[in-house]
Amino acid sequence: MPSLKSLRIRINSVKSTQKITSAMKMVAAAKLRRSQSQAEAARPYAKRMGQMMSAIAAGAASNPNAPELLVGTGKDKVHLLVAVTADRGLAGAFNSNIGRAVRLKARELQAQGKMVKILAVGRKGHDYFRREMNDLIVGHKNFVGKKTIEFTDAEAIADNIVTMFREGQFDICTLVFNRFMSVMTQTVTESPLIPAATPTANDNAPAADYEVEPDDGTLLDRLLPRNLAVQIYSALLENSAGFYASQMTAMDNATRNAGEMIKKLSLNYNRARQANITSELIEIISGAEAV
């Protein structure tokens, strides 16, 4: 039976933990709202860009001189996995889900005799891969200390990827990130970056009647890297919204668990106190009877 004093200390420490987790939950909720509205605001651009891409790409994909960013190098020897994670932890399984998905995919590709390279975006992911498969990392990037994600951040990553692609460092590039479904669920999603998702001929019927200036090829050369940046940008935004949602849920659970713990400990504490009082009473009564 622990002493009354040690129980009291224990209760106080759990109480202060609970205060911290509930404060973190509030902060995450506020930040979630901000990053959700940021993600919302970025949607029109991505949507238009997607429409424009499919309008032009449908015609160009069958062209033998189509840019490699669109149709790929024709090989699939070297894969680049771009893993997007958060810079901070305390968010449940948010970061480790990405880590696990990338690890499984990497192992699977390696089993097929392909080469795998990893570009880690976000500090937590980088830490994880450094432990698990350091030799595969070809680059990393994080946004520690940045308040909001800007488009230029995504552009820098896209530039980096395009340069590596032009140098022939990989053939296929896949983006792995947490898609924000709702506050409760974030799903690990893989989306192909290079070759760009090629639209099939039949889902783009009205595309043909656009005039294109200066011409398909030149415009595609400019559009493709831009589209890459847009996709990365939206993945970064989804990642940040998902992270705060996941952190909020994790902290909510922690607060609730702390509450239960406090309840249990207080029960024990009161029982012990009661037992003490009872035994003291018995002593007094039996002392009085003896007189």
Binding site: Y45, F151, P214, T218
Partner: peptide, 25 residues
């Protein structure tokens, strides 16, 4: 006319004419 930057929809309103700087003029 809709003017959209990667971060947000900046402006959306009806106008009589808009002059844009195309690559070819």
């Amino acid at each position: 006319l809709e003017i959209i930057s990667p971060e947000k929809l900046l402006l959306s309103k009806p106008v009589d004419m808009v002059v844009i700087p195309g690559t070819e003029g």
